[in-house]
Design a protein around this nucleic acid. Structure first.
Length: 569
RNA sequence: UGGGGUGUAGCCAAGUGGUAAGGCAGCGGGUUUUGAUCCCGCCAUGCGGAGGUUCGAGUCCUCCCACCCCAGCCA
């Protein structure tokens, strides 16, 4: 006979209504500020934005920022823009834009209107630069980069005014035009704001507004050869879009006076306010874009979506669901202190989500044949298994059962102490969703390896305990010997053995965990797994959570994370 | 040594002058056909330190200490 081999867990709606069990949490400082701004009437509707530079893939730290910005808009009835801060064509690429859009969508957020680009405001930004020149508040400086550094002073000493600082407005206008028209080579001059070379805040020492980059831009092509700096662009972009709360990370706090200076001195259409929060630091992982790029470029990992990477794409390929990431971001909070979050917290969020939502299946990683000597050779019956132990909305599975089955080699021992709850010769074990069996003997090869176990089923124990009252101590998973799926499995572990591979001057490459990936072949699983759905993460009972890999040519499952294991002994 | 920021348990984090929430981790115990989940209990006489104000201080004041960020024509 054949059994129903429709893929298990194929329903598209796996979710319970997670919104209902969202625990209430005290509002964090940004929520308190916004609440006040709404109540006072200052910002009846808030507008936030997520402003990535397309120079790499998004990682879990960005997820925190995304959840914050989109989340704030969501909870306060506002909107959030997705804007690429693409002011540096030398480092950016369309590939990153596409990947970032995909990741934000996957996380489940929707932005207001179209995707925005800082580059679409280049003309306005240029005109405002001219405005500043006309106000006598900006000048073209021909100091070289090295000279400029010397003139800038140090943290404890004031800088010196540039010799070009007192050029006339007319001269500056003419020079800036020459810059824009390409008469100057890269690095020969810049446009600077005229603020205060003695400011204790380095950012106010005549910051650069425009620099020359004779590069083709991924959005604007060759329209421009001068590009605005972050400082000159960001606040004005926010003002153009009517952003009310411009949220960034702590390291930008001392840019705030400059952010405000531009908003004050330029005829911008709105006055956004910048707020800073502490970026996410996770132990045992790196989140610096430079290091992630190096891991990818030097092929220490299998691309930006390698399941061991903390990139959104990597977490997705690993089998983590967006709900888990959002839960994690909610758990860690938003403050101005820069702590290091324990990965155990991320792992908890992942397990918590998957436990509630992953359809169950049985899989045997290290197959060991078990022959049920008292079971007829030509008989096959169908066992029934729940899709999920606490949910009846997930499809029930039908499991063929016959004389020969596979169990995991780790689940059998010739002899063992009382703590071992699996199969032992002379003892009984429950086959999950099937019979209780008792082992009689095992067969070994010339090397002494156990290659087969001979056991007996105890009659009448499907759904019941043995009539003789001798109950098995444990339950193990199994797979039918005839009808099953065969596949490879990739067991992932943390990429770094060191708690802080990202710290200062460490040679992070030398801290890579040599066993962060263990590949297994010839694993067997219940027949439905042959048609496993990409994008669904299953729980392989007693083993952990697994999802079908998106890249492998042969059927392969990636281990998202193991089950919590509190077994001691 | 200039400026900006932060210090509450092993980790994250509430607390907004009235006597230290919650989560993670850990440790006990219960349920269980997943050594999972779930449930129950334990886990800061203490809030970076020292003074001070107050009937009362994690919250206010003073001084001190530690850590993070800033001297890119990166963001």
């Amino acid at each position: 006979m054949t059994v129903n081999d429709t893929p298990i867990g194929s329903r598209t709606h796996l979710d319970n209504d997670n919104a209902n069990d969202k625990p209430s949490r005290p509002p964090h400082f940004l929520e308190q500020i916004i609440q006040g701004d709404i109540q006072s009437g200052k910002t009846p509707q808030i507008v936030t934005r997520f402003p990535p530079e397309p120079n790499g893939y998004l990682h879990i730290g960005h997820a925190k920022s995304i959840c914050l910005n989109f989340g704030l808009a969501e909870t306060f009835g506002g909107v959030c823009n997705l804007r690429f801060d693409d002011t540096n064509p030398a480092k950016e690429d369309q590939e990153y834009i596409d990947a970032i859009i995909r990741d934000v969508e996957w996380l489940g957020f929707r932005w207001q209107g179209d995707v925005r680009y800082a580059s679409s405001y280049f003309q306005q930004l240029h005109d405002w630069a001219v405005d500043l020149i006309e106000q006598g508040k900006a000048y073209v400086c021909h100091l070289t980069a090295d000279q400029a550094r010397e003139y800038r002073g140090t943290l404890t000493e004031a800088g010196q005014n540039s010799p070009y600082r007192e050029r006339t407005i007319e001269e500056n206008l003419a020079e800036f035009t020459k810059m824009r028209e390409g008469h100057y080579d890269e690095g020969t001059c810049v446009l600077r704001a005229k603020i205060d070379m003695a400011s204790p805040n380095m950012n106010m020492r005549d910051p650069i507004l425009y620099r020359i980059r004779k590069q083709t831009h991924h959005q604007t092509g060759d329209d421009w050869c001068i590009y605005p700096t972050y400082d000159f662009a960001h606040g004005q972009e926010d003002a153009i879009e009517g952003i009310t709360h411009s949220i960034c990370t702590l390291e930008f706090a001392d840019h705030r006076p400059l952010y405000e200076w531009f908003v004050q001195h330029l005829p911008v259409p709105s006055e956004p306010t910048q707020y800073e929060f502490g970026r996410l630091n996770l132990n045992y992982t790196v989140t610096s874009k430079r290091k992630l790029k190096q891991l990818v470029d030097e092929q220490h990992v299998d691309g930006w979506d390698d399941p061991r990477l903390p990139t959104i794409a990597g977490l997705r390929r690993r089998g983590v669901r967006p709900e888990a990431l959002r839960k994690f971001c909610d758990m860690i909070g938003v403050t101005k202190s820069d702590g290091v979050v324990d990965v155990a917290m991320l792992e908890h969020a992942i397990r918590d989500d998957l436990d509630k939502n992953a359809p169950r299946a049985m899989c045997v990683l290290n197959p060991l044949k078990v022959t049920l000597t008292n079971y007829p050779e030509d008989k096959t019956e169908v066992m029934h298994a729940q899709g999920h132990p606490n949910r009846d909305d997930l499809e029930e599975r039908e499991l063929p059962f016959s004389r020969e089955i596979f169990i995991d080699a780790d689940d059998f021992r010739e002899e063992a102490n009382k703590k071992y709850k699996r199969l032992v010769i002379g003892k009984r074990v429950r086959l999950r969703n099937a019979y209780v069996i008792e082992a009689d003997e095992c067969v070994k090869d010339e090397q002494g390896n156990i290659v087969e176990v001979k056991a007996r089923v105890i009659e009448g124990t499907v759904g019941n305990n043995p009539e003789d009252g001798i109950k098995p101590k444990g339950v193990i998973q199994w797979v039918d010997g005839k009808q099953h799926a065969t596949f490879d499995v990739a067991l992932y572990d943390r990429l770094f053995t060191d708690e802080s591979p990202d710290a200062g001057d460490k040679d992070f490459l030398s801290l890579i965990n040599p066993s962060s990936l263990e590949k297994k072949t010839q694993c067997v699983g219940e027949i439905g797994l042959a048609n496993a759905v990409v994008g669904t993460t299953y729980q392989f009972e007693r083993e952990g959570y697994f999802c079908r890999d998106t890249r492998s040519e042969i059927l392969t499952f990636n281990r998202t994370i193991g089950l919590r294991d509190t077994f001691v002994g």
